[in-house]
Design a protein around this nucleic acid. Structure first.
Lengths: 263, 263
DNA sequence: ATGTCTTTGTGAACGCGTGCACAAAGATGG
DNA sequence: CCATCTTTGTGCACGCGTTCACAAAGACAT
């Protein structure tokens, strides 16, 4: 997962463990898909399968929210969608600013999943004066000078940083000073923030390196002496995969696009 | 962090805990920055600060790799860079394919951090026939029909999925069947893969929802009765932040750009 | 050579998260 | 109203990851 929380040791927020909070959006997505298919109830077993988790874990997760299920029947889909949405704070609108409108920033701005989940792009901010006024995803880019003004007048509490690494900390400091208390960081840097501010980072490079580690391990496992790796292991994987691929008919839950509008 | 591993319970890969593996890229980045500044050695304390972790944790992490430090002195930067690179499998080149060249796919293709870390974009693949042949980031986009051929002839073992959610599982199945054993998934779907295949997901929507949860909690904490939240809490945060911002002079480690070339 | 001072490497304790397995709850049918 | 069957909610145990705290190792000065 390209995610990684930063500071803030635990989160007994109200007894809800951090690990559970991280899974709630997953459940919500699966439930939304069921809701769209007008499915009235689901068992923990079914929902767990859809979300790709253990059913016992799911039940325990829900138990932190309260007893919303009916024994012998399962969970009411609509009710659960509401409860989770409320718990995650998605019943209100969250204005978000994106700083750094490069390729990634623009891609994020175009992300359709924002509005559908209660997030609204309040502003796009870039340091390049040439970008100012240019429309991206239907919103005019504003210059960094306006940052504080934008944050304060819109009551923005969530900021997305998509700048180069060199500018990230500075942007972060300005966001925080202006009142932002949650930051999603796409820049490959460790951000330092005061207590009370949450930072989550998304780092492509780190994700790839973790995959490379496991990939190397797999290759080395079945090729004892050093030779051309990633070949002997491959044949076996392909065989196992062919069968799995053939059995894969289930279609994607919803028509959602990834973190960005694909062509 | 916007990351999340999927199956594969533990990873005693060779005794190296999964949590440690996930931090190695972080250390590597900090070390690379030190190396560029020609710093010969670092103490665990200094390096830990740069990587944003606890120094005891860092030492324990390194202890899994072997005893590469010198008591009373610290760690040799160059040597450590080499050891971590080797452990992560970055001494070899990893060809990568990106499937789904929409806004995000294109942004990823433009990501400069690929090559610098041992990853090479072997091909860009999209289902839209109109995209075929069109150059993105200097590479001609190829049609999905070529997928199996590309994977096999280039020996690709890592695939990046940036398609809409509806197409993700199908693309995943084809990648796996063709020999890919590591997948980085940007589509908002749970992917089902056979054993032996690693999946990591990056999900903007989930990250934002997690932030929203904490944001809501912060707002509710200091505003007992329901009213206009996220306002009283803000003032305190701003005050605390101003001081922190003023004390922030350290410049970004390297000139790396985020998951994409910014304008 | 010896003593001091710094910094590593790790034993041990603790806490969180996971998964098993089962009792309790409630629906459903007779 | 009772029996049966399904599915939830959770007590418990286990394992991983984190952190503390300190002994051992080595550099460095005298």
């Amino acid at each position: 997962m390209a995610t990684g929380r930063t500071h803030r040791p635990a989160t007994r927020s109200r007894g809800i463990p951090e690990a559970t909070v991280a899974r709630l959006p997953l459940y919500l997505r699966a439930l939304t898909a069921l809701s769209e298919r007008s499915v009235p109830t689901v068992s923990s077993e079914e929902l767990a399968a859809a979300a790709g988790v253990n059913s016992a874990k799911l039940r325990k997760d829900f138990s932190y929210l309260g007893s919303y299920g009916t024994r012998g029947v399962g969970y009411d889909v609509e009710y659960l969608v509401y409860q989770i949405s409320r718990e995650l704070g998605l019943t209100q609108d969250w204005p978000v600013v994106i700083v750094g409108i490069g390729n990634l920033g623009a891609a994020l701005a175009n992300y359709g999943g924002f509005a559908s989940r209660g997030f609204r792009v309040a502003a796009l901010i870039d340091a390049d004066p040439a970008m100012a006024g240019k429309p991206v995803a239907g919103i005019a880019v504003q210059h960094t000078d306006e940052l504080e003004h934008i944050i304060e007048s819109n009551g923005v509490s969530i900021g997305v940083i998509a700048t180069p690494a060199g500018a990230a900390q500075q942007v972060c400091d300005r966001l925080v000073a202006a009142g932002v208390t949650s930051i999603l960081n796409f820049a490959p840097t460790v951000l330092t923030v005061p207590d009370g501010v949450d930072v989550r980072k998304v780092d492509l490079s780190i994700e790839l390196q973790i995959l490379a580690f496991h990939e190397q391990r797999k290759a080395g496992e079945e090729t004892p002496e050093g030779g051309a790796p990633a070949t002997s292991g491959r044949a076996a994987a392909v065989a196992a995969a062919a069968e799995a691929a053939a059995a894969a008919d289930r279609k994607g839950p919803d028509g959602d696009v990834p973190a960005v509008m694909p062509a």
